[in-house]
Nucleic acid binder design. Structure first.
Lengths: 241, 241
DNA sequence: TCGACTTTGTGAATTCATGCACGAGCGACA
DNA sequence: TGTCGCTCGTGCATGAATTCACAAAGTCGA
């Protein structure tokens, strides 16, 4: 009992990196590499070696001093710790552009997240087949979830529908949501929600672009002085909630 | 001169939140809301009000005590600071599943990132039209970038091609890369790179799912004791690089 | 068997981010 | 014009994440 079982609760920042290490390790294993040092892994992941060691230490003490980590064993341990030693089928909500791309994208099934179902509320889309899966009606969500034990829902709808979809996913018993709609969705705290907003990513890049542009053109751009001041018009209190 | 120009260098964590505030503010403006308190904005963004104020304070001092922030003016300032007062056309590399979905996804153009070009190295794809844009050959990248001044490249290729594509993007003069391929891509430090790996997101959710499952079934699952020990076989030093 | 060498695992120092708590400023209203 | 109430801006304390630096633990070759 006292053998391996690692101390729980891995810091979020580490949890976010483990999949990256995992992916690199799998590539290395495929390439015939048997073991790897924290230094080598750090190099490939583009991070600091000490960080790699600390991250891995949360899993347990699986390295061998003077040698490094056995690739296969590390893969095994990361998988186990992250719950990737089983498949997690997902239900995609939204059979539009993005939903279809996700369903057709091999990267899901190939990495342990097969598309178990796709639903849409548009009758015209229902019964069409995408990526080998027949689109079903949104109303069947409860049946699907309770019938298959799917725990993860993927929202690929327009922003306007996202929150309602999230509510329905939660009601159906989903406990993790990956949201691609460009809006915040809220859910009870027992449910994990992650939002991936493509535009947000681009906007972050935009900030850095802009920053570089400013630096190039002499420390700061001559003010784009639009005259507008903070209190350009006296503020009138509007609805705040 | 001493008027507005805010102190530079906004912490990364704040930069990542500003687009979210921006989006909420735009929604509010559309709904006719004229001003909003840090409390209100925090509520909508799902974060702490002090954090909102601190984030916004990096832009300058644009709030009015006792009243809040003028929505329109805040939108203007966030846009300006993030470089969103101009369009940033992007070039998408990869006309496959994902590339097509991205090109067809309104969320890009609609938010200031029009798809300026799509390229692919598959002759069969070249000249087909996706989302109103004709796919051109990858080899035209240099011409496209220098001709249009596009600064942002989006990688929507298989992982195996990602690094080479990144290199070519950099060579062509791109300074920001948004990578959707499930692999690390490296670039000179003058180039910003962000990777969005859908599977990684799911794996993070998996971790939390698994964690909940473990907690439910009595503190910790009975060990899946596969006998395997850290040094199951004596490690032989393999290639490390 | 021993000593040189390599690489881990982790305490300690540092940097970054969050959240509290409160002074200061502003509008509203008498 | 003075007072009251609201909300910002920010100093400070706390906590999380990163990085350094080194003892401990192992391998390898002679």
């Amino acid at each position: 009992m006292s053998t391996s079982r690692p101390r729980r609760r891995i810091p979020e920042a580490s949890v976010a990196r483990l999949p990256i290490y995992l992916q690199i390790l799998i590539e290395q294993a495929d390439g015939g590499v048997l073991n790897i040092s924290s230094e080598g892994l750090a190099e490939l992941a583009g991070v600091n070696a000490a960080k790699v060691r600390k991250d891995l230490s949360y899993l347990g003490s699986y390295g061998v001093r003077g040698v490094g980590y056995e690739v296969d064993y590390l893969i095994f341990q990361i998988r186990r710790e992250m719950g990737l030693d089983q498949d997690w089928p997902v239900v995609i909500v939204g059979g539009g552009n993005l939903g279809q791309a996700l369903a057709g994208y091999g990267g899901f099934s190939g990495r342990g997240f097969p598309v178990g179902a796709i639903v849409d509320n548009d009758p015209a889309k229902v019964d069409t087949v995408v990526g080998g899966v027949r689109i079903r009606h949104l109303d069947e969500l409860d049946t699907i979830v309770s019938g298959t034990g799917i725990a993860i829902g993927v929202i690929a709808t327009p922003a306007s529908a996202a929150q309602e979809v999230a509510d329905r996913l939660v009601a159906a018993g989903i406990t993790s949501i990956l949201n691609f709609a460009p809006t915040i969705v809220t859910a009870p705290s027992r449910v994990s929600v992650r939002t991936v907003d493509l535009a947000v990513e681009l906007q972050i890049l935009s900030y850095h672009e802009q920053r570089r542009a400013n630096l190039r053109s002499g420390t700061r751009t001559g003010g784009r002085g639009t005259g507008l001041g903070p209190g350009s018009a006296t503020l009138k209190r509007g609805a705040t909630a």
